[in-house]
């Protein structure tokens, strides 16, 4: 099935949820959902026998950097407002089709329901999204940092306004 057919099926099934397709000039098209309806859509695409997406390939977190850019007291760039986005890429081993789903959350208080009870591969991907971007997943049994040290308290590294700290436990970081 193409993405257009999958989108039509979902739109007919859930009439009161706002979803739409987006595509830029080059590249692929993807379905955009709001975070409240995310869990319902994910459950549907996994359990529906015509769709049967049983293989979660990747969850990516992106800093959209579409808020206001201000300068703080040291002259460093700070972004206020705007969104952070999550992209889910899924594939179906029985029907041989794939799909991409996007949600956007607030930058100040990002929270999204977890997908770990549907696909176990979401476990480490969600921990990495939390570690690098700061997005909290509600219902995750073990949401800790995974790549950075456990006592790293200097922020979330992949945000666009991240400033490299000077020292970490007496080790000098800059060159």
């Amino acid at each position: 099935m193409t993405i257009k057919e999958i989108f039509d099926l979902l739109k007919n099934r859930f009439e009161n949820i706002k979803i739409y397709i987006e595509k830029f000039e080059v590249g692929e098209e993807y379905i955009v959902v709001s975070p409240d309806a995310l869990k319902q859509i994910l459950q549907e695409i996994r359990n529906n026998p015509r769709l049967h997406f049983d293989y979660l390939m990747c969850i990516s977190s992106v800093d959209d950097a579409n808020g206001e850019i201000k300068k703080d007291e040291n002259g460093n760039k700070i972004i206020k407002g705007g969104t952070l986005s999550l992209y889910y890429h899924l594939y179906s081993t029985t029907r041989n089709h794939k799909i991409a789903i996007k949600t956007s959350v607030d930058r100040e208080n990002p929270a999204v329901p977890t997908a770990i009870d549907l696909w176990k591969s979401a476990d480490w991907h969600e921990r990495e999204a939390f570690d690098m971007m700061g997005i909290k997943f509600e219902g995750h049994p073990n949401l800790k940092r995974i790549l950075m040290p456990y006592d790293w308290n200097a922020g979330f590294p992949l945000r666009k306004d991240f400033i490299t700290p000077e020292y970490y436990n007496d080790l000098k970081i800059p060159y």
């Binding site: 830029f24 000039e25 080059v26 590249g27 692929e28 993807y30 390939m57 990747c58 990516s60 992106v62 992209y87 890429h89 991409a100």
Partner: peptide
């Protein structure tokens, strides 16, 4: 200098599925 867009492409590396997601 590509135009605005999103792509996720995957290849079969010796260890498994290697995917690149570029915005």
């Amino acid at each position: 200098k590509p135009k605005k867009g999103i792509v996720y492409s995957r290849v079969e590396s010796p260890r498994g599925e290697l995917g690149f997601f570029i915005i």
